[in-house]
Each structure stands twice: as C-alpha cells, then as structure tokens.
Simulated scan of single mutants.
Amino acid sequence: MNRVLILGGTKYFGKKLVQLLLDKDIEVTIATRGKEKDEFGNRVNRLIIDRMSRESQIEAFKDKSWDVVFDQTCYSPQEVKDTVEALNGNVKRYIFTSTQAVYDFGLDHKEEDFNPYHFQFEYKTRMEYPGIYGYQEAKRAAEAVLFAQADLEVVAVRFPMVVSKDDYTERLKFHVDKVLKGEPIGIPDMKVGFSFILADEAAQFLFGIAQSSFTGPINPGSKGSMSLEEIITKIERVAEKSAIIEKELTKENASPYGMPGTFETNTEKALSLGFKFSDLNEMIDELITYYVKNK
C-alpha cells in the first residue's frame, strides 16, 4: 500500500487515519467538498468532489490511480455507484466505513446476520433516506452495491459507536455534563445499549485491514455492549451526583444514545485476525473520569 485515496479524512478518526498513513510515508490524497480545513498542509494531496455529483468525481479522479480507497462519507447507494464508476477500475481495494446499524436491533450480531449480497434496494440519494431506519437502509444498500463489484477487493467495516476524549460529537460527554449540572436526561429505555470502539483504535483498524488480504464485512470494537443504565451508573459514581432521568423527551434533554433498541456486535472475526481492542468497562470508565475532571 503506497498510494491511498480517502473520501473524507478531515474529521475525527478520519484525521487519525490520515496521520497513521503519513507516519508510514504513504502518499495520501483527500477528496472532500473543500469546506473543512485540515492540519496536514502540503503533506497530502487534495481533490474537491461532491458525493452527490457523479460528474465532479469523474473530473477529480480522471487519469489517477490508487492502491486503496477509504470511503468515509458515503450515505447512499447512488453515491457509491457514482464513485465506483468515476474511479473506473483505478483502485484495487475499497475500504468502506459502514455501521453496526446495518443489523436489526439485538445482541451479539455476527457479520452473517446481514448479507449484503442478497439485499434488494433502489438507487436513491442520501436525501431520500431520512431518520435512523433510512440510515440503516442507505448503508445496507451501499454495501450491496460495493460487494457486487467483481473487480474490487471490498471490506465493509461495521463500526459501533466511536468514542474518545476528543469526540467532537460529545455524545457520551452530553450525559456527564447533564449529571454534573443537575439537569434532566431524556431516556425512554435505560436498558438500551451499544457496542463501542475508541477513535484511535478505529483508525488503527482501518489501517490494518487495508493492508490485509481480508475481504467482506467485519465488526471491529470492544467486546460486548453497555446499556445506558450502566453508563449512567458509572457517571453517578465518578461525579458523586445522582442523575435525573425523564422518559418524556425534549430538544434539550434527549439523550443522543436514546435509540429504540440495542446494537451489539460480535467482534470474534476481527479478534481472530489479530486485532486488539480496549476493555469496554475500562474504556468507558476512563472517558467518564476524564470528562468529569475536565468539566
């Protein structure tokens, strides 16, 4: 792997991936809308694209080739179809950032619990997939398009919730802040939970799986899942304050983790390939402690 294209790469673990690649003296090209500044200066190449415009990608990718493409910004089957056609066979390996949300709610989901090869869909744009169930269908359909490409080595990385001290979404921090301020948190079901992965480990996984010979869908992340009830209990212990939980949701109190059900993925396949992930309890404890101490 000498030359890579990253669709995205200017936010969160995308930036961490870029840095990992640069540290290994790999030539990196970032393709974005050009609206987000990055910190990489002249160490990266930059292309301007619009994922909803096939023509912009054809123009940007013309007469260029890469060993690997990391797709961080696809939210519809039409987008990935346009991208594959614009690349026109000039990339060998396609690493797609997918999501645990391709599964239905439930526990211990293995990769085969959603089979993209048999998924029926229509070509739609991202604007035609509203809400959480639209997001699920969009990512499922995007995987289906990619795995139908016979001339591409495709990996669909089904990420769980990504967390870190520098998480710009502040979804976990939201709960810590509410407890510290004595403000209510809107949670319809405290038993709902998720699998998680550290942002640094997400970037490391993308880097590692790109260099492997593995193809297919794969679940990275810490083993198991953690419920909102467990998260709130941990926050209460560290903050030494009781949480105020309300079932009625408002714009101000609604938990960003307030999903209708649990997403838990089985990571045995990733572990069997030699990847290692942080212990879930230790990871969440450390993050909560950090947020409390740096309030």
Rank of each mutant, 00 (worst) to 15 (best):
A60E: 09
K35D: 02
L21P: 12
V44E: 06
R33T: 15
I30Q: 13
E55H: 09
L47V: 11
L20D: 08
E27P: 02
T10W: 00
E27D: 13
E55Q: 14
G34S: 01
T10F: 02
F13D: 04
R46S: 07
G9N: 07
L47K: 09
K35S: 05
K15L: 01
F40S: 02
N45K: 15
R54N: 11
E59P: 00
L20R: 14
V28S: 02
M52R: 14
K24L: 04
A60P: 12
R43N: 13
E36M: 05
N42A: 06
K37L: 07
K24G: 03
R54L: 01
K24S: 13
V28I: 04
Q57Y: 01
T32Q: 05
Y12C: 02
A31S: 13
R46Q: 10
F61V: 08
K16G: 00
A60T: 13
R46I: 00
R51K: 14
K11V: 12
K11F: 03
L21R: 04
K37Q: 12
L22G: 10
N42V: 01
L21A: 07
D50P: 02
M52L: 09
R46F: 01
I30K: 11
R33Q: 11
D25F: 00
N42L: 01
G9T: 05
I30L: 15
T29C: 06
Y12D: 09
F40T: 02
Y12V: 01
T32G: 08
Q19W: 07
K15I: 00
E59Y: 02
N45P: 00
Y12A: 05
R46M: 06
E55R: 09
F61C: 13
L17M: 08
T29H: 02
R54K: 15
T10C: 08
K24E: 15
V28M: 03
D38A: 02
Q57W: 00
I30C: 12
Q19K: 15
Q57D: 03
T32Y: 05
K16M: 14
L22C: 11
E55Y: 05
I30T: 12
T32W: 03
G14L: 01
E39L: 04
F61Y: 15
A31V: 10
T10I: 06
Q19F: 07
K16L: 15
E36N: 14
R43H: 10
S53E: 11
D23K: 12
N45G: 10
E36P: 00
K37R: 11
S56N: 07
K15W: 00
R51V: 10
R43S: 13
V44Q: 10
E59R: 14
E27N: 12
K15V: 00
K11A: 08
D50L: 01
A60F: 07
L21C: 07
R54F: 14
E36I: 15
